[in-house]
Design a protein around this nucleic acid. Sequence first.
DNA 1: GATTTTACCGATAACGTTTTCGTAAATTAA
DNA 2: TTAATTTACGAAAACGTTATCGGTAAAATC
Lengths: 338, 338
Amino acid sequence: MREVTLKHIAEILEISVATVSKALKDYPDVSPKTKKRVKELAETLNYKPNSFAVNFRTRESKTIGLIIPEVVHHFFSNVIKGIIAQAEKKGYLVIILQSNESYQLEKKQLDLLVSKRVDGVLMSLSNDTANYKHINDVLDRDIPLVLFDKTAKLINCSKVIIDDRKAAFIATEHLIKSGCKHIAHFRGPLLPLNSIDRFLGYKKALETYDIKYNPSLVFTCNDVTFEEGFNFTQELINTQSNVDGLFAVSDLVAIGAIAKLNELKIKIPDQISVIGFSNWFMSSAITPSLTTIDQPGYLMGKKAFKRLFKEMTKIRKKQPFKYKTIELPTSLVIRNST
Amino acid sequence: MREVTLKHIAEILEISVATVSKALKDYPDVSPKTKKRVKELAETLNYKPNSFAVNFRTRESKTIGLIIPEVVHHFFSNVIKGIIAQAEKKGYLVIILQSNESYQLEKKQLDLLVSKRVDGVLMSLSNDTANYKHINDVLDRDIPLVLFDKTAKLINCSKVIIDDRKAAFIATEHLIKSGCKHIAHFRGPLLPLNSIDRFLGYKKALETYDIKYNPSLVFTCNDVTFEEGFNFTQELINTQSNVDGLFAVSDLVAIGAIAKLNELKIKIPDQISVIGFSNWFMSSAITPSLTTIDQPGYLMGKKAFKRLFKEMTKIRKKQPFKYKTIELPTSLVIRNST
DNA sequence: GATTTTACCGATAACGTTTTCGTAAATTAA
DNA sequence: TTAATTTACGAAAACGTTATCGGTAAAATC
C-alpha cells in the first residue's frame, strides 16, 4: 500500500505530472475539464500532498517555533493557547520548547528550531538571558522572530508587550488612592525587564504622590512562588509594623501573602490592602478576592503570532518591513482585597 | 549567501557528494583520513544538514504531534512539560494542538498531524469523543499513537493511565475511615472514562463499607470549574443537611467547595471533610490545605513519550510489537481538609 | 488563405540528501 | 606471481513536488 502521489494520478489520467500539479493548484493554463478530472480523481484516491516534498521544494515548513521559559504557568499557558489558535487559522503548526529560565537552554532550543527550519520564531526571554547574540544570529539569517512579554531593549526586533511600568504605577496608585501610606512591594527577580519595570512603576507612583521610598519595604522574589509571598509577608509583618498596602509582582505571590495575612488574622483590606498582577483565574476565587492588573495572555499570543505572520510573508516576498513594538492595554480589576 | 550543502564540501575537497555524506555519518567504507578532512571542513563552514531534504529522503520528521483537550490546565501543563522534556532527550520536537474538548476539532487536528507526517502522535481524548474511527485510521496507517489520561477502552492501542477507580476508592475510603457517613461526590462530565471511573470508585467504596449510595449526594460538574464546586456546595448544604464528607473530581472543584464552606463558616474538617483529586500546587496553599490524590502529570508525559518512542522505533524497523497499557501509581496526600 | 494570438499541455530541471551497486586500487592469500 | 579478497570511493537513482520554458494545435485576426 504505497502513498498516492501526483505520478499515480498522472498515469491513470494519462497526462503529465506537471499538469496534475497545476490542476490541483488552479493554475490558469489548465483547462477546466482537466482540472475537474484531476480534482475528482484526487478526491476519490484521497490524495494528500507529501508535505516533506512540499517543504523541501518550497523551502517552507508552515511551522513556527515557540520558546517559553516555563510551560506550567498560568500566564504562559494562555499565551500558548492564543498562539496556537491564531497559528491554526493561518495553517501553521507550533513547536513548543521550554527554556526553563536558562540562557544556555534557550540558546540550544533556538539552534534546534533553526536547524529544523521553522518559518519563524516566537519567544519570551529566560530570566538569565543577558546576552543576545543567539537571537541576533537568527534575525541576521532573515528568520522572522518576535519577542513577547519578556523582552529586552537591546534586541532590535518586533515585540508584543504590556507597559509594565505604567501598569505597576496604576496598581500602586490604586493603593495610594485607597488610603495606603506605607506600601510594600514584593518584586520579581533582578533581571527580566518586567520586574524591573514593575518595580520602577511602583517607585514612580510613590514619588508622584510624595511618599518616601523605603527600601526595607521591598522584597525580591527570585522564583515568584506562593511560598515566597507567604514567607515574605511574615517577614514584612515582623519588621514593618506600619505597613498598610502591598503590591505583589504576581497574583501567585499576592495569594501567598493573603494566605499568610489570613493566618495572622490580619484584616484585608482594612489593615492591609493587597494588589496582585496578572488576573489569574484563582484571584477571583480566593477570599478575599484579589484586586489585580489584568494582563491579556491570550491576546498577547494572538497578536504575537499575527505580527510574526506578517513578517514571514514580507520576508517570503522579499519586501522590506520595519520592526514594530505592539503594546497591549492592561486594566485594573478591583476586587475585595483593596 | 547560499546555504552550505554537501555539494559545496564535495567540490572543495574534490571528492563526491556520496563520500561526504558517508563521512559525516561515519560509514565504515570511508577512510579515516577523508572522514577527518570532511568533518573538519564541515565544522569550519558550519554545515548544517538541510532537514527538509533529510525528512524527505528518510521519510521521518523527528517530530511528534500532541493533541490535548485544553492547554490552560494545571495537570495537562505538567504532562506537556514531561513530554517535551523526554522528547528533547531523544531528539524529537513536539507540535501541540488543542481539541477544546471537541470531537470535531480533535479529528481535524489529527488529520492535520497526519498530513504533516509526524512520526507519532500522543493524545488525550476530548470529552465528547465517542467515535474512534479517526484514531483507528491513524493506527491502521501504522502511525504510532499512544493515548494518555483520557482514553477509551474500545481503542486498541498503548495507553498511559492511572487507575482512576482505585484512586477514587482510596479517596472515598479515606473519608469513610476518618468517620464520614454521608459522603457527597462532585463528579465530572458523563462521558470521559476518568470521571466515570472516579464515580465508580466512589460507589465501590461506599458499597464495601456498607454505606447506602444516595444519588442526591452526587452532583455533575460539566466544566469542572471552581464555580461549579462553589455553587454545588451551596446546593448541597441547602438540601443535604447531614452531609459530612465530600469527594470532588478535581482539586479545582474541591477548592471551590472549600471557598463556599469557608464563606458559610462551616468547619473543615470538623463538620465536613473534603478531598480533591490531582494534587495541584494550590491545594497545599489554601486554608485549610486540601487532602487529595496525587496524579503524576509530569511522569505521565514522560512515560507516554517513552512508550511512543519505543513504538516508533519498532515500526521503523518493521518489528512487531504489542500494545501496552502502563498504569502509573497515585498516592493519597493527607492534609488538613480531612 | 496566411499570420498572429491564445489555450493547453508536457518535458525537464531542480531542491539536498541517502543508499545501492559497481569498480579500481590496495592488500592478502595461494 | 597470480588469484582472491578487502578497502575506498564514486556514479547514479530516488524521494515527490514545483516552476520554467517551449511547443503544438486550435482559434482569432488580418
